[in-house]
Amino acid sequence: MSQDSGQDRTEEPTEKRLREAREKGDVPRSRELANLAVLGMTALAMLAMASSIGSAAQGWLRGALTFEPGLLGNPDQLAGHFARLLAGLMVPFLPVLGVALLACLVSPAVMGGLRWASKSLQPDFKRLNPASGLKRIYGKEGFAELLRSLLRVVLVAGVGALVISGAMSKLLAIPRMSLEGAIGTGLDVAAMTLVSIVGSLALLAAIDVPWQKFQHRSKLKMTKQEVRDELKQTEGNPELKARMRQVARQMSQRRMMEAVPTADVVVMNPTHYAVALKYDSGTMRAPRVVAKGVDEMALRIRELATSHRVAVVEAPPLARALYRQAQVDQEIPVKLYAAVAQVLSYVYQLRHWSPGRGDAPRLQQPDLGADGAPDADAPEAGR
């Protein structure tokens, strides 16, 4: 089965896939929310500035209806006069237009955030494919867009017709009103119509926004194989990481084996644990662990120590405690100082002893005490 099959895309998109989609400009968009933001903020701006717009419109209309005798003998000035009248009409509405332009940023900010996606500006020749275009028009997305457009037209037209029909008596009375009253009544009806249409668009946006987000996430869903491939790319190939850990472990073991011949003593248990210690009073504050191992590694450490004449001491409790509590290339814990000092003292005495010079030194098993004793409940405690 193809990985690109829609039936296989059952996994939610990962953060990496969502981030890449945002970088390409592929974010959810709601046309209904955009219409609501532009028309709604425009209506609010008109209501807030209704008095100033009405006064400006009244002054403009009075000036436009004032007769200018100079135009009678200069018909070539009519075009300029008309341009000045048009510009004068636009000036009161410039703040409203500015608010409408700012409102265009509301929908992108709410749906997917404002982001400059240069990739979306790059030419995509696949969009020029007539088959793809026909598929978009006559496919499910095209059908859904057609239904939304029809619903938008029916709802907005119906709400506008209801508002205007309810205000018909006011509109019919405008010719009998004064100029100021006619302008005020017209603005009231227009504002009421805008508010009603904005309410209908808000209903459409409340339905369209969740639907667009759901559609966008559905489009970005991934197959199980895509999730696995992305995990390999971000966290690395598991087989390669395992191989790297194995190589690192082998290198660490090699370094330990190279350090065993330089050790002063190897503490054993007697075969399951082995810890090699080195101490130089001139350069070290305390004995340092140069190698440690368990089972097969412990036997290798013992064999290497024996072949290089490194003292091997059997002290099972101390060997277990050192293995658990001390780290390679680090000093031993303070609570094991006394026990290790007993072992090193025995080793130094053994080095200076020779047959015929009295009894051979004997090691008294170190007393670890409560703090240094290994956990009796641990699985290895019986080794």
Rank of each mutant, 00 (worst) to 15 (best):
Q364G: 15
V38Y: 02
T66F: 08
E314H: 02
M192L: 12
A248P: 01
L18D: 05
L71I: 09
E303F: 06
V347N: 03
I301H: 02
G73L: 10
P175Q: 06
Q253F: 14
S5R: 12
K135Y: 05
L204S: 02
P317A: 06
A131H: 13
D124H: 00
A259L: 01
A321K: 01
G382P: 00
L72E: 05
I164N: 02
R300V: 11
F67H: 13
A286G: 06
M268G: 09
Q342P: 02
V313C: 04
K170I: 12
L65M: 08
T42E: 10
S178V: 01
K140E: 12
G186P: 02
A103M: 01
V313H: 03
A37E: 02
T262L: 05
Q122K: 10
A83P: 09
R254D: 15
A202H: 09
P270M: 05
T306I: 08
V343G: 07
E32T: 12
M284R: 04
G70Y: 13
P108K: 03
F143V: 06
P379Q: 09
L128D: 05
L147P: 00
V106F: 04
A167Y: 09
G142S: 07
K170S: 15
P210T: 02
A370N: 12
V99A: 04
R254K: 08
P374I: 04
A50N: 12
D329I: 00
A381C: 10
Q233N: 14
G293I: 02
G282L: 08
P379N: 10
P261V: 09
L240D: 12
L150A: 15
A205E: 06
P374V: 07
R351K: 10
V312W: 05
M222S: 12
E380F: 10
R320H: 10
G40M: 00
R228A: 11
G112A: 02
P361N: 06
T283N: 11
W116N: 07
G282C: 03
